[in-house]
């Protein structure tokens, strides 16, 4: 896969309404390939629910999800071609690193084919030495690499990242941010990142959307948000993080 692929990858169009714990969450946005969108917001704003709705893990109360010209909101998760990296990675504890990454291909091909297809991912993510370890034996940074490689090895059209840094120690965060940004660039498809950290968002993109209490309160580039915060939350958040 090269950066040239990005041009042929589809865009994501989302206009979703879901109900979680009795309260509605509404968000509409478009994400172009190669230009990730960061969904920023406080805890409990409904960010993860939006991702779950896109991936098909949470039913839509109303709205639509389209990838390129293809409507996927009626499809089960396994047919959407949407990769999701969970906040706590949710690796398969009974499978080795190699078989975790080979999982998606294994669903439609033999074990040998799947493992062969997974080899280059091990190499690219620096996981070759860990190929036969189980998730329980990995550090946080290693687990994150496996989770990302596992999602991307499925060759999804869209990549969703749910708080990818929150499970990591502070010391390794900066390093992992750069690494993640490089992998996401390499992927080149439509990418949505959920975070409450402006620094994490900035590492991957400058396009942002703010979700508060289930509603979109502002959208624009990070610079625009900082220059012109629409809510006290945005103002505080970007103030605190500004250098």
């Amino acid at each position: 896969m090269t950066a040239g692929d990005a041009a042929r990858r589809p865009a994501l169009h989302a206009d979703v309404r879901v109900v979680r714990g009795g309260s509605p969450i509404t968000a509409a946005f478009d994400v172009a390939p190669g230009r990730p969108l960061a969904i920023i917001g406080p805890n409990g704003a409904g960010k993860s629910s939006v991702l779950a709705a896109l991936a098909g893990l949470l039913p839509l109360a109303a709205g639509t999800v389209r990838i390129g010209g293809r409507s996927v909101d009626g499809l089960p998760p396994e047919h959407r071609r949407i990769g999701l990296v969970f906040q706590d990675y949710v690796l398969f504890p009974h499978l080795t690193v190699l078989d975790n990454i080979a999982f998606a291909v294994r669903m439609r091909a033999s074990r040998t084919t799947a493992r062969t297809a997974a080899e280059p991912w091990l190499d690219r993510y620096g996981l070759t030495a860990l190929a036969h370890r189980r998730p329980g034996e990995l550090s946080g940074g290693q687990a994150q690499r496996v989770a990302l490689a596992r999602a991307l090895a499925a060759e999804p059209d869209v990549l969703l990242l749910d708080e990818p840094m929150s499970a990591l120690d502070v010391e390794v965060r900066a390093e992992m941010r750069a690494e993640l940004a490089s992998h996401v660039r390499e992927f080149g498809g439509a990418t949505v990142l959920v975070t409450h950290s402006p620094a994490d968002a900035a590492a991957l993109t400058d396009s942002a959307l703010v979700l508060e209490s289930g509603r979109v309160t502002q959208r624009g580039t990070l610079a625009e948000l900082r220059a012109n915060p629409a809510t006290p939350y945005v103002e505080r958040l970007l103030e605190a993080s500004s250098d």
Binding site: P77, E78, F92
Partner: peptide, 12 residues
Amino acid sequence: RTELAAATLGAS
């Protein structure tokens, strides 16, 4: 959630 993760990876 482990089962959901498998579904997002294409598992029926």
